[in-house]
Amino acid sequence: MPTELEELVEFLHSPQHAVKQIALDNLVQFSPANANPKLFAYDNYRPIKDLKEIALKRPETTTTIMVGHAVTILANLCSDTEMRRLITEDDAFIQFVASSIIDLTNRNADLFCILLANMAKLDYITRIFDMDISGVSKDDAFTSSNIMDCLMDCFVKGADRSLNVNANFDYLAYFFADISRFKHGRDYFVTEQDYDNVVPISKLLVFTEKYDSKVRREGVASTIKNSLFDTEKHMKLLTDEAINLLPYILLPIAGSEELDEEEMFNLPEELQLLPADKKREPISDIIAVHLESLLLLCVTREVRELLREKSVYPLIRELHKVTKDELVAELCDRLVQMLMRDEAPTTQEVDAMNSDESDDDEDRIVEVA
Rank of each mutant, 00 (worst) to 15 (best):
L39F: 15
L39P: 12
L39Q: 12
F40P: 01
A41K: 12
A41M: 13
A41L: 06
D43F: 03
D43I: 09
D43R: 15
D43C: 05
N44F: 03
N44K: 06
N44G: 11
Y45V: 08
R46N: 12
P47G: 09
P47V: 12
P47I: 14
I48W: 00
I48E: 05
K49Y: 12
K49W: 11
L51P: 00
K52Y: 02
I54R: 10
I54N: 04
A55M: 09
A55D: 02
A55K: 08
L56E: 12
L56A: 13
L56D: 07
K57G: 00
K57S: 02
R58L: 06
P59I: 14
T62S: 10
T63G: 09
T64W: 00
M66S: 01
G68V: 05
G68D: 07
H69Q: 11
V71E: 06
V71L: 05
V71Y: 01
V71N: 02
T72W: 07
T72Q: 08
N76G: 15
N76Y: 00
N76H: 10
L77S: 06
C78I: 03
S79D: 10
D80R: 11
D80N: 11
E82V: 04
E82S: 02
M83Q: 15
R84L: 04
L86G: 02
L86D: 05
I87D: 03
T88A: 13
T88C: 09
T88L: 01
E89M: 06
E89A: 02
D90L: 10
D90Y: 00
D91N: 08
A92F: 05
F93V: 08
I94F: 01
V97Y: 08
A98S: 14
S99M: 07
S99I: 05
S99H: 02
S100P: 10
S100H: 00
I101Y: 06
I101P: 01
I101M: 07
I102E: 11
I102R: 01
L104Q: 08
T105W: 04
T105Q: 12
T105K: 07
N108S: 13
A109M: 09
A109D: 12
D110G: 09
D110E: 05
D110H: 08
L111D: 15
L111T: 13
F112C: 14
I114Q: 09
L115K: 02
L115Q: 01
L116Q: 04
A117M: 05
M119Y: 00
M119T: 04
M119L: 05
K121E: 15
Y124E: 10
I125S: 01
I125C: 04
I125W: 00
T126I: 10
R127Q: 10
R127W: 01
I128N: 07
I128P: 03
I128G: 13
I128M: 12
M131N: 08
M131F: 14
D132E: 14
D132W: 02
D132A: 10
D132M: 08
I133P: 02
I133A: 14
I133N: 03
S134M: 09
S134G: 04
S134T: 14
G135M: 07
G135P: 09
G135R: 04
V136S: 13
S137V: 15
S137R: 13
K138R: 11
D139H: 15
A141F: 08
A141K: 07
F142R: 13
F142Q: 06
T143E: 14
T143G: 14
T143S: 12
S144W: 02
S144E: 03
S144H: 05
S144N: 09
